[in-house]
Computed example of a mutant assay.
Amino acid sequence: MDRLRRSTVTVAAALAALLIAPAAAQAQQTEYVALGDSYSSGSGAGPYTDTACQRSNKAHPALLAAELGAEFTFVACGGATTDDVLANQVQALDAGTDLVTIGIGGNDIGWTDAVIACITPFKNCTPAIEESERQATQELPAKLDAVYTEIESRAPDAEVVVTGYPRLFAARNTCDALGSISIAEQVRMNQGADVLSGVIQAAAEAHGFTYVDVRDEFTGHEICSQTPWLHGFTLLDVPYHPNAAGHASGYYPALLGAL
C-alpha cells in the first residue's frame, strides 16, 4: 500500500512538472530592441511618444512588440545615420537580447537631397540621384558592415532582421509637389531606391541576418496611387515617409512573415 501511495505521488509530481514547464517557458518574455532611422521610428505615422525622434506606437516595431508581448526597447530615431546607430543606439543591446530589427542607410547616402532636387521645379535631379547611388554602392557597404558587426558583438544570440525601404512613387502620373515631379523623375528615383535595397540586402545576408524587402508590399500604394501608404509633398506631416497604413499593412506583415 505504501509502495502504491509512493508511486501515485511520483506520477502526480511528474505530471505537475510537465504542466508547469510550458507555462514557465511562456512566461519568459522576448527581449526585443528596435534600431534604425525615421522609417523604423515611425516618422509620418504619428502620434509620437518621443517628439525628438518621432517614435510612434503605430510604427512597425511597436506593432511587432505588442504582437509578441515582448520586453521592448525602442531606440530608432528620425534622421539617424549608421554613425548615430553606433554612437547612440547599439548600447541598448546586450547578451540577453533575443530579437533586433534595424532599418538604416537612407540618410547615409544623401537620399533626402535627391528627393528635394526632384521636387524642385525646373531642376534636373538626375545628378543628385546618381550621387546617392554612388554613395550607396561605394561607401554604404562598409558603414553597414560596421553596424552589423557591432550588433553581432553586443547581442551574439539575437535574431537580427534588417528592413529595407519601399519605392516612393507610382510613376504613372504627376500628382505630387504640384506636378513638378515628372513620371521620368519618379521612375529614376524608384531605380535609385532599388539600388539602395540591393546594397542593404547584400550587407545583411553577408552577416547571416534576415532581410525584409517591403517593395512588393508597397506596390500599388506608392505616392500618386489611389491609396498611398506614404506621404507625398505635405506641410502637415512628415513628407516621403510611410503613414500609419504603410506601417500596419506594409512593413508589419512583411516583418511578421519573416519571423
Rank of each mutant, 00 (worst) to 15 (best):
N190D: 15
Q28G: 11
D83I: 00
K58E: 09
D237R: 06
A142Y: 10
L256M: 01
A258H: 12
R55T: 09
R215D: 02
T49A: 13
I119C: 05
L63Q: 08
E152K: 12
S38C: 12
F218W: 02
A21W: 01
T219M: 03
D145F: 00
A146T: 14
V90H: 09
T51F: 04
G79P: 06
C175H: 11
A70Y: 03
P61S: 06
A245W: 00
T30Y: 05
D237V: 03
H207N: 14
Y39I: 14
G220Q: 11
L236Y: 02
H221W: 10
G110P: 04
E205K: 11
E139V: 15
T81V: 08
T234M: 07
V212P: 07
P22H: 00
E31G: 01
I223P: 07
N124C: 05
A95M: 06
E133Y: 03
L64M: 10
A25L: 15
S40T: 15
L259W: 01
P61A: 12
Q29D: 08
S225L: 00
I102P: 03
D108T: 06
T82C: 06
S7R: 15
I104E: 00
V195W: 14
A80D: 07
K58Y: 06
I104M: 04
L256G: 00
A87R: 15
I200W: 01
P239W: 02
I102D: 04
V187Q: 06
R3P: 04
L255E: 13
N107A: 07
R3A: 13
C224D: 12
E133W: 02
L99I: 11
Y211I: 00
P228Q: 08
A142H: 11
A25K: 14
I183W: 04
A248W: 09
D237G: 01
G79H: 04
K123T: 02
P253E: 08
A34K: 11
G36R: 00
L140P: 01
E31L: 05
A95N: 10
E150M: 05
A95F: 03
A23R: 14
T120Y: 10
P47I: 14
E71R: 10
I129K: 10
L255N: 14
G79E: 01
G208E: 02
A206T: 09
A184Q: 02
T82W: 02
V115R: 05
Q226K: 11
K143E: 03
G220C: 07
L18H: 06
Y251F: 15
S43G: 13
D37T: 00
V147N: 02
I223S: 05
T73F: 03
L140C: 02
R5L: 07
